[in-house]
Design a binder for these strands. Sequence first.
DNA 1: AGTGCGATTGACT
DNA 2: GTCAATCGCACTA
Length: 203
Amino acid sequence: MATSSHRYRVLARSGLPLDTVKLARYLIGKIVVRETPQGLLSGRIVETEAYPVGDAAGHAFRGETARTQTLFLSRGHAYVYLAYGTSYMLNVSSEAVGVGAGVLIRALEPLEGIETMQRNRHVKNLRDLARGPGRLAAALDIDRRLEGIDLCRKGSLWLARDLSGAPKVAASTRIGLSKEAHRILRFYIPGNRFVSGAKMLNR
DNA sequence: AGTGCGATTGACT
DNA sequence: GTCAATCGCACTA
C-alpha cells in the first residue's frame, strides 16, 4: 500500500467548531494522516479530551508561555509536549488566535502503515498500537519536530474527513487528572476496542 | 539554582 | 493490582 493520501480530504479550518468541547466531539471519527519518508501512516480518532478555556488542568491555564504558545494559534494547529519524560502527547489547538485551549487526541484505530507502526512501537498487537496518547504518538513517530504544524494543510501531519458516517459518541470524565477530575470532557466511540482507559468508562 | 510534579507507560507482585 | 522511569516546565528564592 503506497501513498494513498488522495483518498483523504483535508479538514477545512472553517469547518472546525470554534469551541474546544465541540471540537473534541467533532474530531471523533476523523483521520490523522502522517506522511514520513517510510510512507503514509493513518488512523481513525476514537478518543479525545477537551482542555477548554479556564480549565485549571489545561496547559494554557496560566497564560501563554514558551511551551504553550501553539495552543494560542488559530484552531487546527498541533501542540506536542512530552509527558512524564517518556511520552509525547498530540493536541489540536481549538480556539481563536490568542485564546489558549486544546484537544488531546488519546487513541486511534490504525488504518494504514500498520507495519511501520508496529516497528515504531516494537509491538505487534493491532489493538495496542495507538490505544493511549503516548502510544499513538510513538506509532506515528510524532515528537516536538511537529510542534505548531498546521493540521488543516497537507504535509507531514494533518487531519482528514472520515469516509464513513458520523459515529456514535459517548462522554466521560478525563483520564489521569488530579485537577478538574469531575468534568465530563472526554469523548469516545462506545464499545470501540481501540479506546483507552478502564472498561467501565467505555460503555 | 533548586524543587516538585505530572493530560503515561510497561514491567512486575 | 502496584510502582518506578524520566525530563521539561513552572514556580520559589
